[in-house]
Amino acid sequence: MLDKAADVTKDQVVDFIYDEARMLDEGRYDEWLALWLPDGHYWMPLDYKQTDPHLVTSLLYEDNFMLRLRVERLNGARTFSQKPKSRCHHVIQRPFIDEFTPERIVTNTSMHYVETRLDEQFLLALVATHELRVVEGQLRIANKRVDLLNSDAAFGSIQLLP
């Protein structure tokens, strides 16, 4: 049963987006996974303004199982590409709240994302679109879309979550 969006304030929505980025930066993945509704997808398109996640390739289009696999793998004893581990850092702009209804909340957030490992470090500019719902008084992620400014560029490994 969905509560009304009115049960949360716009400030709470903004705080939620900041908190999520901080969880990723601090590697608090169990807390981060708990933000998600079970049917949610994390989508990172490959093409600029891509509309279809299914019949063309994306960088990521991950369901709950894949996201869980992704973050559990990071801590595995034989996760060779994470020896040593990567670190990441989000700098985010105050989110726009594009929709704020009892059914759903949609935010649009510009971010700079930095990832580093060993002597390498790279910067990605991106826009994250969150679709949020309020369930039992709590904000949850229904879907998240991350559009990299240079999504069609050739990348080395992007190992953590922008």
């Binding site: 490959l46 019949l55 063309v56 390739t57 960088l59 069609d152 560029a153 050739a154 990348f155 080395g156």
Partner: peptide, 9 residues
């Protein structure tokens, strides 16, 4: 079907 993934090695 769409553009290719481009992965630099």
């Amino acid at each position: 079907a769409g553009p290719p993934l481009r992965y630099m090695h």
